[in-house]
């Protein structure tokens, strides 16, 4: 299941950052992607919320350190 989430996230990342080479791995974090700042972060979150029809709290949004934690957060909501 996490694999599926990662694949979908890869598409979302590519879309938001307009970069076809991006691959979402659990270790990937904001420091690895040049354009990943708080504003693109919120765009990622909103895209994720739309894709899985889920909603995150403001705390959850700000807590994630890397893609792995994102995946966990998504998995918890869609279980």
């Amino acid at each position: 299941m996490n694999e599926e989430i990662l694949n979908a996230l890869t598409e979302i990342f590519r879309d938001i950052f307009d970069n076809e080479d991006l691959v979402a791995t659990p270790e990937l974090c904001a420091d690895d992607v040049e354009e990943w700042d708080s504003l693109s972060h919120i765009q990622l979150v909103v895209a994720i919320e739309k894709y899985w029809h889920i909603k995150f709290t403001a705390r959850e949004i700000m807590k994630w350190q890397n893609v792995g934690e994102m995946v966990q957060g998504i998995a918890n909501k869609i279980e």
Binding site: S38, L39, H41, I42, Q43, V45, V46, K55, F56, T57, A58, I61, M62
Partner: peptide, 16 residues
Amino acid sequence: FSPSVYASTEMVISID
């Protein structure tokens, strides 16, 4: 307006 977007970014207009 999206409260969670506002709380995490100080944006008063939602992404949409």
